[in-house]
Design a protein around this nucleic acid. Sequence first.
DNA 1: TTTTAGCACTCCCACCTGCCGAGTGCTAAC
DNA 2: GTTAGCACTCGGCAGGTGGGAGTGCTAAAA
Lengths: 355, 355
Amino acid sequence: MANSRSVRVVNFSPAELDERKRLILRAIVEEHVATGQPVGSRLLARVVALGLSPATVRNEMADLEESGYLESPHHSAGRIPSQLGYRFYVDHLMQPAQVPFDLLEVIRESLELKTRTVEAVMQQTAHLLGRLTNYMTVVAGPTAGASVLRRIDILPVDDRRAVLVAVTGGGAVHDWAIDLSTPLSDEELRYISEVLTRLLGGRALADVGRTVLQGLEDALAPYRDLLHVVLELLHDQGQAPGEPHLYQGGVANLLAHQEFHDPRLAMDVLWAVEQSPELRQELGQAGEPLVRIRIGTENVVDALSHCSMISVSYTVNGEWAGRLAIIGPTRMDYAHAVPVLQAVAEHLAGWFGRI
Amino acid sequence: MANSRSVRVVNFSPAELDERKRLILRAIVEEHVATGQPVGSRLLARVVALGLSPATVRNEMADLEESGYLESPHHSAGRIPSQLGYRFYVDHLMQPAQVPFDLLEVIRESLELKTRTVEAVMQQTAHLLGRLTNYMTVVAGPTAGASVLRRIDILPVDDRRAVLVAVTGGGAVHDWAIDLSTPLSDEELRYISEVLTRLLGGRALADVGRTVLQGLEDALAPYRDLLHVVLELLHDQGQAPGEPHLYQGGVANLLAHQEFHDPRLAMDVLWAVEQSPELRQELGQAGEPLVRIRIGTENVVDALSHCSMISVSYTVNGEWAGRLAIIGPTRMDYAHAVPVLQAVAEHLAGWFGRI
DNA sequence: TTTTAGCACTCCCACCTGCCGAGTGCTAAC
DNA sequence: GTTAGCACTCGGCAGGTGGGAGTGCTAAAA
């Protein structure tokens, strides 16, 4: 038994893994990410330029396994990183790669100014990320509730129907169909639009308070029926900030990874991405970490317990707007994916800024 | 050799397959669709209530194979329908199933009036179809170019930017960001919007002719710069009618079918659905058959040569608007899928009508 | 002439077997 | 603390086998 070693190792706090162990763990993660195969001691001794023999490396690997950073798929098959191993790698060992210039070029070209609709640019972003990272991509569009409003207009469709159109500071347009219980003239609608814009413009729906609503009710008293519908609608948008439209890209990439050759696993993931409200919330709700890495069971959804998800926030006019995410196996190339995501998020913000 | 038989059979024109052969072909298709297994003569003799012995059925099957309606995966494995077999089945043998009442109920509930945005209702439709048919679904949203316009407004975002908003007869809202090279006042923008609405309202962009454009140029001469941008934009929309936004649903369903357990096949399909301009066109371009069934290599895209795609048109206010499609293996339950698609298309039209 | 029973034949598939290579843990020597 | 040596374990693969399903053909029956 490796008691003399293991006892010591267990006392380590994770962040204090000894330099050599860190080196070895990092090499194992990167080798495994690159090849998909379990990593054996011989190969590792060759890769880690420390002049160590396989036997020594084996001892270190045994320690790392005992501390929970590695696991063996079966006896004598080499080691693979455990979820904890990936976590330690991501937190302490990973060195984010630099995004090569030609990739930046692709991003720039792809998010050109000639794209003129938010829908198109979000879809394009999803596809772009899919191509650049080789992982499946989910992108949350900006929500009406979280955005600063510039205008609110009610535009007639016919005498029974109209659309409520909200233009945000980023130039995104949100619209909702509303019924006109009593027909209103163009002038009346324009007047209502003006009042709505005057009182709601410059703030986000999520921040609209009682007093503003009261002001609206007073100013638009003659149009109580319509106002009721409109306010309820806007209120819903303000209260449910976590319901963005999700754009998918590179779905096929999911299947490219050996981990998802079992169709059942892949199906679970795809269902979750399509349906799960938790995931939608996770991507649509303003929240702290600019870059969030969830590994395996850290994910909010069970179906993703074999996946990692990296998401980064993007902004519109400096305000939080949504998250871009990629989903892949836990054996993910974190060091490359993170900077690519960040670069795309930046360019997307740029697109909104100079829309 | 079965010469005496085969010579005669070859002379049949497809539509004139003898009654018994039709019965057998139909049984084979339906049995194979249900089980996924090749169909053998013994089973078939039991299923087709003709009191025929397996040996007789074998002879008929040999004829059908020779005429190209069946094929054998390998010697002594039973028969499966060929692409031609499915085609004949779809054209002459299939009896569309009736949509059960509770399914209709699900459709009704799902496409309720409380859904207020076109984006949401299209996405919902895609998901719904995915659930109801167990096939992957692609849905083309209505395009700006093909829709009858009700209003065109230019709404300011800030003094350098604005959005062009087009409201269609179905209540769909399309928007594009535009730069204001010279700042314009709200009044000016409103005036421009009025002129645009007056001259373009009531017709589809695709139908706008030279004279109307000339009229615009005259009426809005002072705003040449802006008008140039706007007209180019509207012109593009009118000229490129086949570029709808595609909504996917039930992607996981693709993997549920044994035919796509090979991840490479599934990947090809997913890439095609995401990227192929041909497919986008196929679904976004007004075109004849209300129900279109493409089997195997009949598909416009190579990647779908192992798939069948059923698409149906839907309308908005009676005008052609887009297609709903499902994609699955050629071994598809055509008889059930077609009526479900039709029912959903009808309800979708209903949603737009009473939006 | 059409239908049927019988039969030999073909092919796939699931199972078993033994072998090989990769990689481990342990021990004893350095 | 490090290393070489060695016995051991396990998965994967090639090759062989038996069983089952289904066919085509032939000759007899209807």
